[in-house]
């Protein structure tokens, strides 16, 4: 049986070929890739970068900082010593990323950040990421639309409060909800992107608010925990059925797509990993060749999709392939 990582890489590779052909000047360039951690979403990003780097004919050296800013700094030092042409990093600590970027730039190595924006974008050569604010806002607008002026009780599960994606997916959701007085956020629970904590948050909120109408799950990994808690209370019902709890999630992982297909997830917002990977690699290769980049930073909003959109948006939904 084909390994899932290989399969994911093949799928993302196909997306990349469709989306954007990369320059072919990269034969001898080695790109240093530094990740903050490994987990399902990062695996998808790794597969995306693998495919983009392979498509460009470059090679790579990969390091995982395992949630440690100091370790990430050391690994970047090693990548510089190794003589990589450019570094693509997903920073663990957005403040520390600024210093790490300065060290790389001082050594003449272009430093590109992906997904998590550093505290100061001026410090990096280029940044490409999702748009956590646009995604959070899209989720909020969806809840307002579903509530349709009626009283609506919402549970907001939060990711991490020390992380740019976690903070902005939350703040922009709340901005979008601010104008709708009928939608009340009855609980906001930080989970540190942990599935079990998402389950416990749902279970506890259902205890206080058995008539809960909606749940915002800003990471697909949390969905299983939410479904498990809903099932235990007899509230796991597909979209359209009486008593259904409206759920919106973000990521676009296969598990999110399956939940949409099964009818339990109303809306998922797929982070455009293939486009993000392509742009990061493209920028790394251009900068290492001394070419000027057209933009300093790009934020790519996610692709919102429900069950009705699966066919129409199939090309953009890498987690559904």
């Amino acid at each position: 049986m084909m390994k899932s990582r290989t399969l994911l890489a093949c799928l993302l590779g196909t997306c990349l070929i469709v989306l954007a052909p990369l320059p072919t000047m990269a034969q001898d360039v080695k790109i240093g890739v530094s990740f903050d951690k490994v987990e399902p979403f990062r695996e998808a990003q790794k597969a995306g970068l693998d495919a983009a780097i392979a498509a460009a004919g470059a090679s790579q050296s990969f390091a995982n900082a395992d949630k440690d800013a100091q370790r990430q700094a050391s690994q970047v030092d090693s990548l510089i010593s190794e003589g990589v042409g450019a570094i693509i990093a997903i920073p663990w600590d957005i403040e520390a990323a600024v210093t790490i970027a300065q060290v790389a730039e001082a050594s003449g190595i272009p430093f590109i950040t992906m997904d998590q924006a550093p505290a100061d974008l001026e410090a990096v050569t280029y940044h490409v990421g999702g748009d956590p604010c646009a995604d959070g806002r899209a989720a909020g607008e969806f809840f307002v639309k579903v509530a349709d002026g009626q009283p609506f009780k919402l549970l907001e599960i939060q990711g991490s409060l020390s992380n740019d994606n976690g903070i902005r997916r939350s703040s922009c959701l709340n901005e979008a909800l601010a104008s709708a007085g009928n939608v009340s956020v009855v609980a906001q629970v930080p989970t540190d992107w942990n599935t079990e904590r998402a389950m416990i948050a749902t279970q506890n909120t259902l205890q206080e608010h058995p008539d809960l109408n909606g749940i915002y799950v800003p990471f697909n990994d949390g969905l299983n925990g939410v479904f498990s808690a809903l099932e235990a209370r007899g509230r796991l019902k597909p979209v359209g059925e009486d008593g259904h709890v409206t759920i919106v999630s973000i990521d676009g992982l296969p598990i999110g797509c399956k939940a949409v297909q099964d009818g339990f997830l109303d809306l998922d917002i797929a982070t455009p990993i293939p486009a993000m990977s392509t742009k990061a690699v493209e920028a790394a290769l251009k900068a290492s060749a001394g070419e000027e980049l057209q933009a300093k930073a790009e934020f790519l909003p996610g692709v919102p999709y429900g069950k009705a959109d699966l066919e129409a948006k199939a090309d953009e939904l890498w987690g559904c392939k």
Partner: peptide, 9 residues
């Protein structure tokens, strides 16, 4: 309980 094995377990 959760029904999923996550790397964060």
């Amino acid at each position: 309980r959760v029904g999923v094995l996550s790397s964060e377990l």
